[in-house]
Nucleic acid binder design. Structure first.
Lengths: 228, 228
DNA sequence: GTTTTAATAATTGTTGACAATCTTGATATC
DNA sequence: GATATCAAGATTGTCAACAATTATTAAAAC
């Protein structure tokens, strides 16, 4: 499942959100250990709260909990990475198609405004916000498509994609520039649903293609670096 | 998010699975209250375990937790119901399409065997297993499509659909007979991907159409029955 | 010098008791 | 009689101490 996670008020949600953002924004590398007591100290909450947050994050696939060993930032395998991209293509293609049918001027305006901000951050060389906005584009698209359920699935997929990029990006590459997003928005604006879905599919394939997903999955540890 | 939930070993997973099945098999009506202490007594576990299980079930959308009030079997609204069906169409259409491209003889055999079992239960008038097998067909399709992630999303969607049917079915109707499933399998067997996706979409629309989703969403309580 | 074994420390898992909140029922007031 | 107020009971939420498990270190054996 997937459903309303990002609550706001309660202190336990605060812990969840902080860790979630840290992982999604790639401030914590995959494999990082998350000690309960340390987190409890950082956030000034009881260990039970941290425990709940970690359990929820495990449900989201961002954290892996090994019994009696602790919680770690997940290290998605190559197979999982490919699967995530397949799921994104399947879902986002449909969302783009639906948006073509339901797009109002306000919706188009929101999309164009977002792409403009992406362009801005990209031009200024502000990589961190560029990354966040880039993921945000896909989330915005899901939000505007009017399916709360798929929006939540998409939120999950985008955050997992962050982990995948952190693990498998070959270098600090172009990182999903705003041009392809602009094209998609253009297709939606004109109501070309087939073209929009095709562009979205291609865009995600392009993103997947920039990663190094060829390595042997059996050597996901640090050992592989030493033996190369 | 959606990911590996149905663990097997641990006692807390046992509680989760038992409650999950009870809801998915429509043995517990939407709105039923789930008292922690009572569940703890039934399953002979501590209240903390029950608490974990309920939290996970809330994440799956099968249970709604109201702070300081307790846990209840969810009562999906009409909007949520429509959204769930939209999501199912989006995802299952893509899964059917993919299966057309990757279907092996073994896969086809598994699908046909399942449909045969559905026919059997239907002919014998065994409604309960017919319902379970009917949902199982969609899950099997997701499993054979080879996307663990979407399979998990589908599992979530199918269980939510059970709740929706429990709430909105107009009577104990035909309940998704096996004939449409057979047609879909036939299309997959022949590799007609467009036809398979179309059949799947239509099948889900048909299922949604058998429900009474016209009622005013503001009257989801029992009062609406009394005032009609 | 390397491997085994044991003792210690650090970390996670669980439980039961207590606090906070809500529901229910009775009583008082209009 | 209907509504408001308040107390008792029931239920959920939280925490801190304790148990179980694993990691680390040191010593011992080869």
């Amino acid at each position: 499942m997937p459903q309303e996670d990002a609550q706001t008020n309660t202190p336990q949600a605060e812990v969840y959100n902080r860790i979630w953002r840290a992982i999604a924004d790639r401030k914590m590398r995959p494999g990082t250990r998350l000690k309960e007591e340390k987190l409890a100290e950082i956030f000034s909450v009881s260990r039970a709260r941290v425990r709940q947050a970690l359990a929820a994050l495990e449900h989201d696939g961002l954290v892996t909990i090994v019994p009696h060993r602790g919680a770690f930032v997940s290290q998605p395998s190559v197979e999982e990475a490919r699967d995530i991209f397949f799921a994104r293509r399947a879902i986002e293609a449909q969302l783009a198609r639906r948006l073509c049918a339901t797009a109002t001027p306000e919706i188009v305006a929101k999309l164009e405004r977002h792409v403009a901000r992406e362009r801005e951050a990209h031009a200024e060389g502000d990589t961190r916000t560029a990354i966040r906005l880039s993921g945000g584009f896909h989330l915005l698209l899901g939000e505007l498509a009017g399916s709360p359920y798929l929006w939540d699935v998409l939120r999950d997929l985008v955050s997992r994609t962050s982990l995948i990029i952190a693990m498998y990006q070959v270098r600090t590459g172009p990182d999903c520039g705003p041009d392809e997003h602009a094209e998609i928005v253009a297709a939606i604006t004109q109501g070309h649903s087939d073209r929009a879905t095709e562009l979205m599919t291609h865009h995600l394939e392009h993103l997947e293609g920039t990663l190094d997903l060829e390595q042997d999955a059996s050597q996901s540890d640090d050992l592989s670096d030493l033996l190369s």
